[in-house]
C-alpha cells in the first residue's frame, strides 16, 4: 500500500477511532487485496510504511464482496462495478479477504 495512503489511514484511525472506520478496496487481484487488507489490520507486511507494526484491526472489505454489494443501490453498482465482476476473480478475492478478516480484524 502506498506510503502516503498508509499515513492517511493511520491519521484517520486516530481521529475517528478504529472501531468507527470501514475500509473498502477495489484491488484487481486476490493477493493485492489481501496485502492491502493485511496492512490496515495487522500492519504493513512490506515494513516500509507508517503502518509497519501498527495493528489497527480495521473492518475491511472489497467492493465486490456480498456484504458491501448488498448495501449498495443495485443500479449504481451495475453501472460502476458490474462489468468488472466478469473481469475479476471474485471468488479468489473473497477467500483472501475473509481469511484476513478472520485473522486480524478486531471490530
Amino acid at each position: 500500500m502506498d506510503l502516503e495512503n498508509q499515513k492517511r489511514v493511520k491519521e484517520l484511525s486516530e481521529q475517528y477511532g478504529p472501531e468507527n472506520l470501514v475500509v473498502v478496496l477495489g484491488a484487481a487481484e486476490g493477493e493485492a487485496a489481501g496485502l492491502t487488507a493485511e496492512t490496515v489490520t495487522a500492519g504493513d507486511p512490506t515494513y516500509a510504511g507508517p503502518l509497519t507494526g501498527v495493528q489497527l484491526g480495521l473492518k475491511v472489505y472489497h467492493i465486490c464482496e456480498e456484504e458491501i454489494k448488498s448495501e449498495v443501490d443495485p443500479g449504481v453498482y451495475d453501472e460502476q462495478v458490474g462489468m468488472m465482476e466478469m473481469v475479476l476473480d471474485v471468488d479468489e478475492i473473497v477467500d483472501e479477504m475473509s481469511a484476513i478478516r478472520e485473522q486480524f480484524t478486531k471490530y
Binding site: L12, V24, G26, E71, V72, D73, E79
Partner: peptide
C-alpha cells in the same frame, strides 16, 4: 460509517467505489 476507499487503477478505481457506497 466513516469509510476509507482504496481503489485500484487496474481493478475498481476509487471514484467508482465512492459512487457505490454513497448510495449506502
Amino acid at each position: 460509517k466513516k469509510v476509507i476507499v482504496v481503489g485500484d487503477r487496474d481493478g475498481v478505481p476509487g471514484p467508482a467505489i465512492d459512487e457505490c457506497i454513497k448510495t449506502a
